[in-house]
Nucleic acid binder design. Sequence first.
DNA 1: GCCGGCATAGGTGTTTATACCTATGGTTTT
DNA 2: AAAACCATAGGTATAAACACCTATGCCGGC
Lengths: 213, 213
Amino acid sequence: MNKIHIAIVDDHALFRDGIRMVLNQIPEFEVIYDTSNGHDFIDFIKTTPVDIVLMDIEMPSLSGIETTLQSLELKPDLKVIALTMYTDEMHYMQMMKAGVKGFILKKSNKFQLKQAIEEVFSGGNCFSQEIIQKLASQSIGKRANDPDQLTDREKDVLNLICKGLTSKEIADKLFISIKTVEVHRANILRKTNARNTAELMIWAVKNNLITLE
Amino acid sequence: MNKIHIAIVDDHALFRDGIRMVLNQIPEFEVIYDTSNGHDFIDFIKTTPVDIVLMDIEMPSLSGIETTLQSLELKPDLKVIALTMYTDEMHYMQMMKAGVKGFILKKSNKFQLKQAIEEVFSGGNCFSQEIIQKLASQSIGKRANDPDQLTDREKDVLNLICKGLTSKEIADKLFISIKTVEVHRANILRKTNARNTAELMIWAVKNNLITLE
DNA sequence: GCCGGCATAGGTGTTTATACCTATGGTTTT
DNA sequence: AAAACCATAGGTATAAACACCTATGCCGGC
């Protein structure tokens, strides 16, 4: 029987070691590679086929989103499952857009992980219940109030603002000019009637556009 | 030979499973208990002796700090090692004050973890290099006086900041100079390791010092 | 009585955010 | 095709936040 070949990309070494052992304990799985950064992973898949990748979203240097995009450009059949700590709409949307086949929260247990990998390997999707419910409740909450809708790009910027990034850092992350970020900021403030970053964050939390946990 | 009995308290099940396997692989270690929450752990140690506890700091409901305090009240000889994802001065100070014997970053590797456990078990301390350097650079010029938590006045200012007031508005509201508010702001930022208002609000929410709803 | 922590406040910078403005290329809608 | 909207980006300001400095009066512990 052919084992499912799994790679792990996560900057937390302890977590990586742990997942590796958990998965290797399951007969049909074999972790063939793990690394702390996206660059190494991109190099790796150039030479070695991989069935499933468990990809951390929050990583320094090359983010999980960027790594996924570049990986799928090289190997369009690669099945990427995003590992995330939080339930965060922006990450979710970006990763979906990037082409991941599923999400797993780090607080899931090994049975859920096993199920997710099997599901995705056999061609399906896997999105954790909590994330789906959260998204659902958010889209309901959105229709209820707020006449001034933010555009997709504005939501991207809003999310990064609420993570504590400066305009410069947001510009670098989104590969756009700081001036563009400032325009988005100004438009967001106008639409939300917020006077500054703090009021903006309050608005964002109250309108369920971001999560602070 | 007597094995070192280890317990793990962390709300991320996958991480817990992983660490458990990593540690059980090492002959002199034995993970005898793991749980996702502090309450269960407190109950557990009432009946069962434990040598080392790996304690996650960021946990919902009962925090790692509270759990550590209550555990040490019950079992003063318990050796607690804090597991943390971030490098945040307030957390270190609070955990140190609570009586932990060491810190380990989640991005450490298993060798560092093994070393840390052995060191603490044999009566020593273990504070990861990165944390020590960070603390050292922050406490240059300071005395042995531990800057533990926010003062009452700082909490007043923090609350108003998180309500969206500017420094000027806070000054007017508290009948003090804007310069004083700015000093408080700076001290709060230093103590919380936040770089700006957004990061400060994230910290405040995570530490239950403010509510946004 | 001394010392440390705290709240107060001023000085002097740099960096970041915010407020306006114009402008262009690309979609989508009408 | 024209209109409306969006993302992009530059210019020119001011306002606010942040960094690092000194200093003083008050209060509580030793």
